[in-house]
Amino acid sequence: MSSKETSTAVAKPRLKSGQQRLFALIALIAIYVIFAAFGNRFFTYRTFMNILEQSYYIGFLAVGVTFIIITGGIDLSLGTVMMCSAMVGLVSFGAGVPFVLALIITLLVGVLFGVLNGVLVSYLKLPAFIATMGSMMIALGLSAIVSKVQTRHFPSRTAEVGSWFQNVFRSVNMDGTVIPTGAFWLVGLIVIAVIVLNKTRIGRYTFAVGSNEEAVRLSGVAVEKWKLIPYIIAGFCTGMAGIMYGATYTTIIPQTGQGEELNAIAAVVIGGTSLSGGIGSITGTVIGVFIMSVLQVGLMSMNVQPHYQKVLTGIIVIMAVFIDIRQHKKR
């Protein structure tokens, strides 16, 4: 006699991964429609370009950190590493390094920070929160040291060297029409990220580790390696974000960037990726990114101070996490 009552009898809530993403998409459309109706000249090509540009660097940060968050990890160093890598690139440019090489250096710094974070978390088994907080501080200090606390600038469209930079990474102005070249990069990243996350081993293990790391280990998989890779991906994206940020705003101020990681994480969470790991999507993250930038641009078009945007973003994040928890609550 050995019947069992509790575990099999209780009907489990079925996991629905796409549901929150759908909510987010509806929310994005709703917000857009509201601003189009009530905002001042919101529904224009110009404003749309503005929204796109707001999304470039945050998009790169958010797509990268989506990988980390699906493994159940977190990265608090994104914002400062983005600024630090841009700064290191600019300083080397200033020191006579060819501009293209300076951009590659920018990317490399991002990747190196990703490797650092990943090794700390996966091989040395540090909690991701603490390890990446340490990296955040290192990046913050490093950008001040290499720049000697001097603000630096990426080349503008009229610069002698690198005048192509903004054309390639931000937009081309042709006969008064703006072609958002930055968006091509972002779309390219999104396509690659979607493929990597859903169609390759990297993606499979990213989900698997976030779902049940011990099970993956017991299946004979080298977990450490697969936990490291998402941090490197995020590091690469962060370096790219540094370039995108430079193209959009040109000015890099040392010791900044703090808080951008939280914007990126907020976008990821709004898009339905679970902070407890195992669930998430790139498309959700992209929707989250656009919710944030539409809010930002939209509120500006209604002449609302940016502080209100922060409050609203906070409320949306809390709502998103609330929905996430409600959906995946056990019993």
């Binding site: 996991l15 991964s17 499979r204 989900f207 698997a208 976030g210 779902s211 049940n212 011990e214 099970a215 993956v216 017991l218 299946s219 004979g220 998989v221 195992g278 669930i279």
Partner: peptide, 16 residues
């Protein structure tokens, strides 16, 4: 049981 709940049956079976 050591399973990856967010993955499918086949994905669990062939992990690694």
């Amino acid at each position: 049981l050591n399973m990856m709940n967010h993955l499918t049956v086949a994905q669990n079976m062939f992990i690694g």
